[in-house]
């Protein structure tokens, strides 16, 4: 911190904030993917089939 000079708190806060927001984006996209695939599996389990006849959860 001392090597960053008198404005170290501004630099550290900037990098910390970017890390936090990018991490939030990654977690949000990952959780959304899990939610959508879980819904597709539920629909498939209830007997709903795509018009093509392929599995609903197939990627």
């Amino acid at each position: 911190m001392a090597a960053l000079g008198p404005y170290a708190s501004f630099i550290v806060t900037s990098y910390g904030l970017v890390t936090a927001v990018v991490a939030l984006l990654i977690v949000w996209i990952f959780l959304d993917y899990r939610q959508q695939t879980a819904r597709l599996r539920e629909l498939e389990a209830s007997g709903i089939v795509r018009r093509s006849g392929r599995s609903a959860a197939e990627i």
Partner: peptide, 17 residues
Amino acid sequence: LAAMRNEILRRRVRSLQ
């Protein structure tokens, strides 16, 4: 690309529902 994949799956869920 990951978010587009999610959106395609969301639309697939909607049409199946």
